[in-house]
Every structure is written in C-alpha cells, then in structure tokens.
Design a protein around this nucleic acid. Structure first.
Length: 490
RNA sequence: CGGGAUGUAGCUUAGUCCGGUUAAAGUGCGCGUCUGGGGGGCGCGAGAUCGGUGGUUCGAAUCCACUCAUCCCGACCA
C-alpha cells in the first residue's frame, strides 16, 4: 500500500517539512525554535563538515575554539555589528538557581545577578578580535587564519527546520591580514572553496556574487556570497564570505608594526556556512517520494536488500552480500546490507527511497540462480538487472553518474529559471513566476527597497561573472552599468 | 508584539456546538500465526490523570474564568 504524502506542487513548505521528518533528519525540540538533529541527518552534516574541514586545512587554515559567551560590552564596540544583531540576542543575566520558597521548583536566584551580562554568540567576530589584539604585534604574526566549528544563537521570530532555527551549527573563519588586498584575496578564495563544495559535493549549482549594501553583513565592507535556486523558484543564500576592512581591528584596537616600523590596523575577513546547507541540499534535489542525496554526501551510498522465504535462502544470499561488502569497502563505497527480518522487502524499498540512498540492490532466489542482481538508482528510479560478476565496478561508475546527473539536472533548472527582463511590468511577472530575474538597477538602496515593497523580491547578488552591459534601471530608468540578480528568497 | 486557530494514546485525529455510566478510531508498539520480488493479512494485547489550575453541576474531554504551550498570518529577520 502506498502511503500518501504531500507533493511539491501541492504545498512546497509542507512537502519540505514532511521530508525532513520522514527521512529522519531532524525534529522539533520542545525548546521553541530549536531542533533536534537526528543521527541520519547529523551523518550528512558530518560528511559536509569533514569535506569542508579538509578543504580549510588544505588551504592553510587551522581550527580553534572561542567561548560561547560574549560580554555585552564587546558586542557594542562595532556600531554596525551591534545594530545588526542586537534584536536577536539571547542574554545571560544570572549564574545560579535556587529552590523556590513555596517549594514549587527552582527559580532564578536574584542574588546571583551577573555584573556584566553575557550574550550567547550570534557570531564570534567580537570575542575573537578581542583575542587577536593580544596575538598580533608585528607583521610577522600575520596572517592569522583560523576557523571554528561551533553553535550560534539568533533569536528568530519564525523558524524552520535547518533553514532558520534559533540555534544552529556552523563554521566561522576569522582571518587577520597585513594588507587590504590580502584580506580581499582571502575573501575571494574562501568563496571559491564554498562554491566548489556546493557544486562538486552537494551537486548544487550556485551563483557567486556580491551583496548590495542593504544585504551586507553587519560590520562588513564587502560581502560575497553563493546563491542557489530551490525547486520552488526561491533563492537561498548558501554561504557568505566577508571583507571586514579594518572595522573590527579599530573597534578592538588591533595594530601591528609593519616592515618599515609603521603602525597600522589589521585587515580582517570572516566566512561561514551553516546547517542551512542541509535545507539547501534537501530542496535542491529531493522529489515527491522523499530525499534524494548526491552520492558524495550520502551516509549510505548503496543498500542491498535480500528477498527470501526460508532461512537457507537468506543464508546463501547473505554469503554473496558479504563478498560485496569487501568489494565496496575496497573502493571506498559505503554499503549497507539490510537483512533485518522484521521488515519486509517492500517496506525497505520505500524506507531507503525516502532516505535518499543513491543506489539500491536487491537479490532474490531467482537472481541468485541466474547470477544477477537488481540495481535501482534513486535519482531516475531506473531499474536494471545486472550481472553479479563485476557489480562493484558497475555501481562505482553508477554513483559517479548519479552525482553528475543531479548536478546537470539542477543546473538545467537554474538556467531555465533565470530570465533577463528590461521593464518593470515584465519584472513583476517574472518574479511572481519564481526563479532568478536578471535586471538593471540604479545602484541605490532606495530603489532596492521600493522594489522589495512592490514585489517582495530582493537583490540576491551582483554576480561576479557577467558581461559588462549598460542599461537603465527597471524601476527608475536611471543608468546602470550591469545587471543584478533578483529573487524571492528564503 | 498585533490578528486567527489548536491542545484527547508515541503519532494523526473523532467526540466538544446540545454535559450522562467503561473516552473512540487509524497508525505505531508487543505476542502469535500465515507470509515475503514495492510501505502485508488475520487474531490477541499493552498504551490517555482528555495541556494546567480553579469554578458551575448530582455528574465535565464537553459549560465558565484564568493560565501555559504550540501552530498559522502579519511585523521582524544572516
């Protein structure tokens, strides 16, 4: 019996929520706005982490860890920064509980008030730059290239699993440089790392771009980003890399002596991606049956299901599967043989489909006799009967093909969903249809805001790679030097 | 913080308008059995102080008041 689920075309956000829960990725916690990431979901995040972490290290960065709590006074040192985050900070005011007088439970001990309140980090620039002051005296101490894997808290009004939660996991890189150019290069380099990760591993095409002033990170001089397009036509910011100028160095008085003996403030960057990538991954590839995972991020790449009546049949199939286990493991392919006798084959088929396992194998008595095995790929659901001999090699190249196919499909969708328009009427129509809309803009925040009011669309980015082209702003008609990318966004 | 809605078994819900004895179903869970190539069938069983507190009443899941929580729509939002 097929179980009814919400389809993407019926209600996209309902579909999304159901996938997250059905695929066992995460659930709502009793704590408002916070989620529990379940083992299967966390396994995907761990793969992302592992790959990114290696990329950071390969490019010369190292990990460190800074405190969860930030003294309130630190946060207020950089004016734009505090303004950007003040409205969504959790604050620690006391350090002790006590039993209530009426015995009804514990209450906050009013005598244990902190002299200076602590902010639960919404991001760590301030506490890190406070340390950097002590670490940096000379140009010889630079650059400092540090990353930390951590949780942060932003008290959001409305939350959605993975996409926007009050607490989330991320990595934040914080670097310090002797020159502006070096910091800018760092910002670009890390953006490349993110783009490469998104495309090669998540199989998710992205647009690399620059944020407009109003979308820029609080405290940054320049924000670069990768933007991706979800299947419902809404854009999602998947990663950001900021050139912070000397803002934090000035706020925290971080100076260094250069070769000539002069004293100057240090140049900074920060860059990050979060568990939001999980949301992007889900919305980029999954279908009405459930999750679809790119092989390079799938915790289980291949699952095998035995079909049998008697114990003897199971035993002879198991013998074959154990051979496979070794063959796959020597190729670095993660393989699961599901011989759980409490679940039936049909149930298992649905289960692994829901969880997005890229390749499913099934073997029954008939196959065993004929030296065959059934191979089903998750992305196209194509089913083939293949010779058992040499199956590991067959599956290895199939996984590569699936990885490529997912990217190609997503790229095709993105290309088809990106349109150029030259007047406001066409713009409104295109925005309502969904997707990226490439249009001329006069470069002012006023115009940007008015367009947002009229259409709910925002400028996702000013693409880094694009042809120079003069034109006129779709709203005001004023001259423009190039197109920017608009979309409704998550 | 404004507007709307909902809290009943692990989950999804019926019952509430119009008060009545042991609170109902599906799913999930446990046991048995037949089964097994796309979410199995049958039988038996466990599981709920009906969000909380107080009130009205002979009697409250049901009516009233208060309270807590969650969800949706706004506002806000890397």
């Amino acid at each position: 019996m097929a179980v009814k689920h919400t389809k993407r075309t019926e209600d996209y956000s309902k579909w999304y929520n159901e996938i997250v829960q059905r695929a066992d990725l995460a659930e709502h916690s009793d704590v408002r706005g916070c989620m529990v990431i379940k083992p299967y979901g966390f396994a995907i995040w761990e793969k992302m982490k592992e790959i990114l972490d290696q990329k950071f290290k390969d490019t010369g960065r190292s990990n460190a860890y800074f405190p969860l709590f930030i003294p309130k006074s630190y946060l207020s040192k950089e004016a734009d920064h505090v303004e950007g985050f003040a409205k969504e900070c959790a604050v620690v005011t006391h350090y002790r509980l006590k039993n209530s007088d009426d015995g009804s439970g514990v209450v906050v001990d009013p005598n244990a008030k902190l002299e200076e309140e602590l902010i639960v980090r919404p991001t760590s620039e301030t506490i890190i730059w406070n340390s950097y002051r002590n670490w940096i005296q000379s140009y010889r101490d630079l650059p400092i290239l540090i990353n930390q894997w951590a949780n942060v808290v932003r008290w959001e009004m409305r939350t959605r699993l993975f996409l926007r939660t009050a607490e989330f996991l991320w990595q934040e890189g914080h670097t310090a440089h002797a020159t502006a150019q070096e910091a800018k290069d760092e910002t670009s380099q890390m953006l490349e790392v993110y783009a490469d990760f998104a495309e090669k591993y998540m199989a998710m095409p992205v647009v690399k771009g620059r944020k407009t002033e109003s979308e820029r990170f609080a405290g940054a001089e320049d924000t670069l980003c990768i933007e991706s397009l979800m299947q419902d036509g809404k854009a999602l910011q998947a990663g950001t890399s900021h050139f912070l100028g000397q803002n934090f160095a000035k706020a925290f008085d971080v100076k260094f002596a250069d070769k000539q003996g002069g004293l100057d403030h240090v140049w900074a960057t920060s860059w990050g991606v979060s568990t939001r990538l999980m949301g992007a991954l889900i919305m980029c590839h999954s279908d009405d049956e459930g999750l679809v995972l790119p092989p390079r991020l799938a915790p289980i790449q291949v699952v095998a299901i035995p079909i049998y009546r008697s114990k003897d049949e199971l035993r002879s199939i198991s013998d074959k599967m154990n051979l496979l286990k070794d063959a796959f493991s020597s190729k670095g392919i993660s393989f699961k043989f599901d011989d759980d006798d409490n679940r039936r084959p049909g149930w298992k088929f649905s289960e692994y489909e829901t969880k997005g396992v890229p390749v499913r194998l099934a073997m029954g008595p008939r196959d065993l006799e004929n030296g065959k095995i059934e191979v089903v790929r998750r992305d196209t659901k194509e089913k083939d009967l293949v010779d058992f001999e040499g199956i590991a090699g067959y599956v290895a190249s199939l996984l590569d093909e699936i990885q490529k196919n997912l990217f190609d499909k997503a790229l095709d969708f993105k290309t088809k969903s990106t349109v150029e328009v030259d007047d406001f009427k066409a713009f409104k129509k295109a925005i309502n249809k969904g997707g990226f809309v490439s249009a001329h803009w006069d470069g002012t925040s006023e115009t940007e805001n008015r367009i947002k009011e009229y259409t709910q669309a925002t400028i996702r980015c000013i693409p880094l790679e694009q042809k120079k082209e003069s034109g006129s702003c779709i709203l005001t008609g004023k001259p423009s030097q190039g197109r920017v990318l608009f979309a409704k966004a998550y």
